[in-house]
Amino acid sequence: MQALRDITFEVKPGELFGLIGPDGAGKTTLFRILTTLLFADEGTASVAGMDVVGDYRDIRKAVGYMPGRFSLYQDLSVEENLDFFATIFGTTVEENYDLIKDIYIQIEPFKKRRVVALSGGMKQKLALSCALIHKPKVLFLDEPTTGVDPVSRREFWDMLKRLNSTGITVLVSTPYMDEAELCNRIALIQEGELLVVDSPENIVANHTDSLYKVAAKNTYMLIKDLKDFKGNKSVYAFGEFIHYTHSNSDFSEERLGEYLEAKGHEDIKIVKARAGIEDVFMALSEKKGTEV
C-alpha cells in the first residue's frame, strides 16, 4: 500500500494553506511526515527552514500539531492539560497567553473540569490552545472540523483566520470542499497524489468545462435521464440542482430542454453556472481515474 506518491508543494510564510481530500487520501500521513512523526520512504521535506529528518528536534519546538483524534489527557482538567503542554515545551501559560486568549477565554469557566466531561466543541478549543501554547511558527491542524456541524465549523474557521492574521503559518486538512475558499492556497489530494496546488480562485478560473445547473420536479428521474443524454460527461447532484457537463462543444440548452420535456419532466430549469472547488475536484479525479 502506497499512502503518498510524489508529493511536491510549498507553503509560504504566513499562509493559510488547505489540504483538501476525502478519508484515506493520505492527509494524515503527510502531516505526520511534516511534523517528524513518520519517515518518508523517498523525497525530502523541510519545515520552517529545517529538514524533517536531520533537524527533527528543532522542528518539534517550532511547530504546533493538533491531530485528528483528540490528543488531550482525558483524566486531567482543562487547566492541567494546558499547563502540561506549556511545561513540556519549556514555557508557561502566562508567557504566551495573548496568543490563546481569544480561544481559551471561551473554555476558562470550565478550567477545573476534566477533559472527559467536555463537549466536542470545548475539547477542540482546548486542543487548539494546547497546540499553540509554545508559540509555534507553523501550526498543523489535521481535520479539525470533521464531524462538526456547519455552525461550529464556521466558528472554528473564524478563529483560524484570526490566528493566521497574527502571522502564524497554518496548514489545515479537511474533507469538506466548501472550506477551500477560506484558504489562501489549497492542495487537492486523492489516493495519495496531489491533483492540483493553487489558490482556490485560480483553480476555479482554470477549469474550462462549461457547467450547467439543471433542476426538475423529480430529481431522481432527472439524474437517470441526464446520464442517458447523448454526449454527457458528468452528472452530479449538487444541493437542489444537478451539475451537468457535456463532453463536446455540440451542446445547446434548448436541445437538453426538449429532451427532458420529452421524457416527461416538469418545472425544468437549465442555467449556465460557474464551477466550484468540488466540481473541479470531481473532474480532476475522474480524469485521473481514466488515465490509470
Binding site: P22, Y236, A237, S285
Partner: peptide, 13 residues
Amino acid sequence: GGVDPITRRQFWE
C-alpha cells in the same frame, strides 16, 4: 462523513 465527493453522490443515488 469523510467520503469522497463522487462516491458521496453515488451513495445518494
